[in-house]
Structure formats: C-alpha cells, structure tokens
Simulated assay, not measured.
Amino acid sequence: MLETTAENVVRSWVDGWIASRMAAPPTVEPWGYTVDVGVVGHVTRHVFDATGDAVREADVRKVAGSVRTGGTWLKIFAEPAVITPWLGPEWWIDDEPGYLMTVPLTPAPAHRLTAPDGYRLRSWVRGDVVRTMVATADGALAARGQIAVGGATAVVDQIETSADHRRKGLGSLVMRVLATAAHERGAQTGVLAGTPDGHALYASLGWQVLAPLTSAKYLDPQDR
C-alpha cells in the first residue's frame, strides 16, 4: 500500500477529481497542478500540492498574480485566514474552509447497502467511475454520489442529498455503497475534498481531516 503523505494524497485527489469530472489531464507545475476543466464559471483550476504550514506565500502570490481570466479557481490546502491576505480584491474567497480527508476503505455488510422503505437504490459504472443514486418511489432524486477508482486510491465526489430527504441516512448509504464498490475494485484508501456541510457526515463514517482547504475564484470585473 502506498504510504499516505499529504503530497501523494493531493495528487490522488487531483487525478480522481479529473476522472470524475472528465477534465483534462493535469499539467505538473513547480508548486502543484493546473487542470483545465472547460466549464462556464470553472474554466481552469490551480491546485497547490503543499498543505498547512508548507504552503508558500510566494507561490500563491505568483500564481494568483498571473491570472487574468474569470472562472479560474485556486485550491489551497490551508486555512482561509492564512490565504486571504495573500490575494487581492479580484478574488472571491470562501471564508469557510473545506477539508482534505482520507479513510481506509472497508466493505459494508449487505444489510447496510439497501435503501430504506420508500426509496430505491441504483449504481452503475462508466470507466473507472462508480455512480450511485437514491430515488423516491415516484422517481424524485433523493441522494447521489460518485467515486473514481485509481489503483489503491478512490476519490469520492459530488455527494448530495436533496433538502427534503436529509437526516434519513441516505448520505451515509451512498457513502457506504461507493466505498464498498471501490474496495471491490481494489482500492484501499478513500480521499475526498469535503465542504463544511459535508464534514459531519464524513467524520461520522470515520474519515479523518488531513488538511483544511481554501477555495478562491478570480472574478470578472463586472462581478467585483
């Protein structure tokens, strides 16, 4: 099993996120990775591979200072309070940190992989990505998520539970189904970049925080 270090977890997350979102392969930079996403509002992202105190102010300022196009994102594994003074007013900064998290993947027992009454569960695979959805009996989407398997590591992405169906265990169900599917495909470690809203769910399932995550977006002049 690959030793879990901050740098290789970041690279695993980058590769898994790319597979999940069908983005371009990363360009390796001295400070991390550049990924072309090709989506309106999210054209390109720059991901720094250092975490915590190892994040260098000079690197962040240099990369941020080279950006001239709206829809460019920075993903930096440090607290927003640390990063904010390094960026100018042309950047929108999420003042709540996300989290880079990991967990050893283990399969769930079969009885923990079934939908509760009134819901149906379906999973399918496209390439290296497993997708799972939970729907109501009449077909409304209740919860969903996906996981990209890349060798020993699998990256969880886009976990969502509809507002009307929260606190019913559906998010946990989706996570268990995805973790089990990834484990069956040979993955040993799970990685994700979670939002503050998702942190409680992931922590309840044994995920551990490796580093905080700051997200920043370069704004077009009319949006400043």
Rank of each mutant, 00 (worst) to 15 (best):
L2M: 10
A6V: 04
E7L: 06
V10I: 09
R11N: 04
G16Q: 00
R21M: 02
M22W: 13
A23K: 00
A23Q: 01
P25A: 13
T27G: 06
P30E: 10
T34D: 11
T34L: 14
V35G: 01
V43N: 02
T44C: 09
T51G: 06
T51A: 08
G52L: 05
V55G: 07
R61H: 12
R61V: 12
K62D: 07
G65I: 10
V67G: 10
P80N: 00
A81R: 09
V82F: 04
D95H: 13
E96A: 15
L100Y: 00
L100T: 01
T102C: 09
T102F: 04
T102V: 07
P107M: 14
P107Y: 12
R112V: 15
R120M: 13
D128R: 04
V129W: 14
T132Y: 07
G139M: 05
I147K: 05
A154V: 06
V155G: 01
I159V: 05
E160R: 04
E160N: 10
G171M: 10
L173V: 11
V177H: 07
V177G: 08
T180C: 09
R185T: 01
A187R: 08
S204L: 15
L210D: 01
L210R: 03
A211V: 10
Y218P: 12
D220R: 03
P221S: 11
D223S: 13
R224K: 11
